[in-house]
Nucleic acid binder design. Structure first.
Lengths: 256, 256
DNA sequence: AGGCGCTTGTGAAGACGTGCACAAATCGCG
DNA sequence: CGCGATTTGTGCACGTCTTCACAAGCGCCT
């Protein structure tokens, strides 16, 4: 469908390489493919088939092929995908050719852990600044960075071009921090606080709530328990379940 | 459609209250509703309309009504939903009437933060045990719990009924830990390690990968950048965009 | 050079999720 | 007692996502 385009090189050529607008579901899976591809590259695989990569990423191979075809990438029929090339392509599409600066607000329990998390550096990000509203914490050094007061955000943002803001404050403070981030030009926010943020149009918010993840698991746990409890309570009827209650196998290993 | 059922009371009555099998999307939103409802309850709201609750939870009101109707709950037309009753209903469906025991494996950077996170206790969970494979860390006390060696998992699991396992180890160790958890009967796992886990049927795995969240944001950031760069490079054409590249407003504030 | 096996890319069908719009139901007030 | 304001519950249509199945393309071997 789309004519070939070769974004490979990080230094963009003269023509602005138009990004195809990918389905959200595809975008959410690309990072997973990328991680799997890096693993493959380290174990010196030159190429990989859709089946192989799909296994490594934990998805269906047809889905993977469709995802990759979306971004105009081309594998070679009969052979597979060139691992190194595919890494370049996905990193380009995800905008990881530049190391993006992340500002982390809130260095409490979770914020501390995030500040020290080494998984960011290897995956295209750099924690550029730490902030907190608590004067007690300002000045503390974490992982080579000094915690600054959140009011200094405008000044720091002027020096460093902050691409993404991470909110790891208590829920009560989150909206205020979000407003501050937006006001200094941040248009992407990752929110760990358990609350809904309202932001102007054009600002993307993603939310991670640890308790919610557990609660979803709890539901399935509860469901499994009542499902197995039902035949046991009913007595002998194990294979012949009451017709009304189909034992839908459900999809285990639910994706993100 | 469904005849009324009143699960309200935690002590189940004689008849096993059958759980309707809800759509996954609905299940993922219920915890969000629950959190919003608790907020409302604290500010002494007796009832709430679908519109009001939808706002508080950041979703469409029609979607909320459909979700709630799925679990057989009933509001009152012309009035709204009884906050306290709805909390009971959702907590029952999610299986939060019992405080579930969580085992946390891996007390590194992130594990430490999770062990100290007080958001769990208030939301239906109790961290029952901490494990690590590193002998250096075994014996350390975090938040009143002592870190044990991961090999003691079977013994501890025999004493406490572990409902959910949380993996916060490096990727290399995650699969092994998952196997161990499964072998002691854990059927729900929350995985923070950046890797795919393979588990037997019937075991639910949810994954949280912080770098992936950032990469998804990075994509949108990249996309916004090229989108605005395009007309700017073209010159004056700001309102009249090239027809081929529709500025699909996209959904900001993307859900989990 | 030709054929064979393997793998990609994609059309089509179905499942799933979303949002509108409206009928049915309930409350409060005159 | 009846009426109007309000809000729930849901039928329906639409868009998105998933999965199957297969044709088209590529490399290798003879």
């Amino acid at each position: 469908m789309s004519q070939h385009r070769h974004p490979g090189a990080p230094g963009r050529a003269g023509a602005v390489p138009a990004l195809p607008d990918l389905p959200e579901a595809t975008v959410a899976r690309l990072p997973e493919y990328l991680r799997a591809l890096h693993n493959l590259a380290e174990t010196s695989h030159e190429t990989v088939s859709s089946e192989g990569l799909a296994n490594a990423a934990g998805v269906n191979s047809a889905k993977l092929r469709k995802d990759l075809s979306q971004l105009g990438s081309y594998g070679t029929r009969g052979v597979g995908y060139d691992v190194a090339l595919l890494i370049d392509q996905i990193e380009y599409v995800l905008g990881l050719t530049q190391r993006r600066a992340v500002a982390l607000v809130g260095v409490g329990n979770l914020g501390h852990a995030l500040a020290g998390y080494d998984g960011f550096a290897g995956r295209g990000f750099r924690i550029a600044a730490l902030f907190d509203a608590d004067q007690e914490r300002v000045g503390e050094e974490i992982n080579g960075l000094i915690v600054r007061h959140v009011d200094e955000l405008p000044r720091v943002a002027a020096e460093e071009s902050i691409a993404i803001g991470v909110i790891a404050t208590p829920a009560a403070a989150a909206q205020r921090v979000a407003d501050q981030l937006v006001s200094v030009g941040v248009t992407s926010i990752l929110n760990f606080a358990p609350c809904v943020l309202s932001v102007p149009e054009g600002v993307d918010v993603r939310k991670v709530d640890l308790a919610i993840e557990l609660q979803i698991l709890s539901f399935h746990e509860h469901r499994k328990a009542t499902l197995t409890a039902l035949p046991a309570a009913g007595g002998p009827a194990l294979t012949a379940l009451p017709g009304g209650l189909a034992v839908t196998e459900s999809q285990e290993a639910i994706g993100t």
